[in-house]
């Protein structure tokens, strides 16, 4: 059956492969399909949220090969042969990632809508700069809006996680 409405969009179906939260997968997608809809509606990974739709707020942030991208403005096709990490893949089973743990301890969240994106961007920051200054954190997180916290607790949580990750790295290095 040809569906008139979808003509514009469904001109082709594309097979892609990617790794999502450590699992390789294949999917048939439409060229127009946005990564955010794919993650939320098809994979049920609803941690990435939709808010501004224009790549300003950061609440849909996921990591693609370790770099933050706005899933609301990224085509699924762009994830072809890439590795994606969403908030659902950050913890190690029941054990929270040090960033998640520090966000809990510092109450670095209120409504929690921005939190998954905020944590993933911070994760990318700490991979790039393990011991960031406060100004570096502020600059890096500029693209992750939060209307609740005023950001102070977020900065403190990132600093705490950085200290812990560094201590962890050092103890592993000396072992």
């Amino acid at each position: 059956m040809r569906v008139e409405s979808a003509d514009v969009y469904n001109s082709a179906q594309i097979q892609i492969r990617m790794i999502v939260n450590g699992q390789s997968m294949e999917a048939t997608i439409e060229p127009r399909e946005l990564l955010l809809d794919f993650l939320r509606d098809r994979l049920g990974l609803t941690g990435a949220k939709r808010s501004c739709d224009v790549q300003v707020c950061g609440t849909c942030t996921v990591l693609m090969d370790g770099r933050p991208v706005s899933a609301c403005c990224t085509l699924v096709y762009e994830a072809q042969n890439r590795e994606l990490l969403t908030i659902e893949g950050l913890a190690d089973g029941d054990e929270l990632h040090p960033l998640q743990q520090s966000f809990v301890e510092q109450s670095a969240l209120q409504c929690g809508f921005c939190t998954p994106g905020m944590i993933l961007t911070a994760n990318s920051l700490l991979e790039e700069i393990p011991n960031p200054t406060r100004q570096q954190i502020q600059h890096y997180l500029k693209g992750n809006l939060c209307r609740c916290t005023g950001y102070w607790s977020v900065l403190e949580a990132v600093e705490l996680a950085a200290r812990r990750l560094q201590a962890e790295g050092q103890s592993e290095g000396s072992a």
Partner: peptide, 14 residues
């Protein structure tokens, strides 16, 4: 807090 840092917290759109 825990449910909000893991993405488990459910909002209406989820």
């Amino acid at each position: 807090a825990r449910s909000k840092v893991t993405g488990e917290a459910i909002f209406t759109g989820d």
